[in-house]
């Protein structure tokens, strides 16, 4: 419909075409300016505000902070291989390192195993429930799951006779971070499963059949045909998961609040604590800018991939 308007207008005059472009772009531009651009610039400005003018003080302080509940990096603990806290930034990185491979693997494996299985949609729905519930509720569920008296995880280890793990996981620095990461696997696998399932649906069967006749075994088909053909789905899953891991907040907030002793602290929570508890807006904004710069890395890579695949298709 819009194309029709285009053509008619371009036939008339160049100027009226310009007017139409502006008319259609204006509402979007106003929204972007008000709700995206202004806060970004504002945060950036605030992050450089100090008591005596403007400067990089906030960044310096945020990065060198050593109190466990606000530190981004605690080099001593990492070097001596002591249990967490290692600093919020390191916790985020650990989160990505454990969570991302697990989510990609589980999503891919489940989608491959469940496609063409009768009634698999029920199983997929159950797994997807983790995505449907609000993350705040998810965080509470995680807390209960690892509770020493109520939780299913400690109960499991108790039945297995491993008493050292039959305790409230979120109360101990050694287990708090890993319990949250594993809990978030359960909450987020539904996402990768859904993306991979959709990708499997759109994969022409004849590729796999051709490979079968060409003599490939099941594993060869999976690694040489299926995985390369699912590249686009993998890019989406990897980038979205990384972004989610770097921005993780709600689960941590309701289950441990970064504790005990900052051992499950994450960047977004540090930003929040500066903002809501310490009322230090400058440092909160500085943390936010650092977090944004870090998330830009996977974001930029993703956009590059999308542009590249767009060019390939053309």
């Amino acid at each position: 419909m819009f194309r029709g308007i285009w053509r008619r207008s371009s036939r008339k005059r160049g100027r009226s075409k310009k007017a139409i472009i502006i008319t259609f772009l204006l509402p979007e531009l106003i929204l972007l300016l008000t709700f995206v651009l202004t806060p970004i610039v504002g945060t950036f400005v605030i992050s450089f505000q100090t008591d005596n003018g403007y400067g990089p003080d906030n960044y310096y302080k945020v990065i060198t902070e050593t109190s466990p509940d606000k530190a981004l990096v605690l080099p001593k603990n990492i070097e001596s291989l002591r249990p967490p806290p290692w600093g919020a930034l390191i916790h985020n990185i650990v989160w990505v390192l454990i969570h991302l491979p697990l989510v990609v693997f589980l999503g891919l494996a489940l989608a491959y195993l469940l496609h063409e299985v009768k009634g698999s949609s029920i199983v997929k729905t159950i797994i997807f429930l983790g995505m449907v519930i609000p993350m705040i509720v998810g965080g509470l569920l995680i807390r209960f799951m690892y509770d020493g008296t109520l939780g299913v995880v400690p109960l499991l280890f108790k039945t297995l006779g491993i008493n050292s793990l039959a305790k409230t996981w979120t109360n101990y620095p050694q287990t708090a971070l890993i319990s949250l990461i594993l809990g978030s696997v359960w909450l987020w696998t539904g996402f990768s499963l859904t993306v991979y399932s959709a990708a499997f649906e759109s994969l022409p069967k004849s590729y796999i059949e051709a490979a079968k006749i060409d003599g490939a075994s099941g594993l060869q088909i999976f690694f040489k045909i299926v995985i390369p053909l699912l590249r686009h789905a993998t890019i989406v899953v990897v980038v979205m998961t990384m972004l989610w891991d770097l921005k993780i907040f709600d689960i941590v907030y309701v289950s441990t609040l970064g504790g005990p002793g900052g051992s499950s602290n994450v960047m977004a929570l540090v930003m929040y604590l500066y903002f809501a508890r310490a009322l230090d807006y400058g440092r909160s904004a500085a943390t936010a800018v650092i977090l944004a710069l870090i998330t830009l890395i996977p974001g930029a890579w993703f956009i590059k991939q999308v542009v590249k695949s767009g060019k390939e298709k053309r």
Binding site: P204, S206, E209, A210, A211, K212, I213, D214, G215, L229
Partner: peptide, 28 residues
């Protein structure tokens, strides 16, 4: 199929899109 020594041309050709022509032909 792989143990029958048959080869099949599909209606939509089913060429593996991520491989070059050489890799496609060499695949079997």
């Amino acid at each position: 199929p792989k143990d029958r020594d048959v080869a099949m041309v599909f209606q939509n050709y089913a060429l593996y899109p991520h491989m070059t022509v050489y890799q496609n032909i060499a695949f079997p």
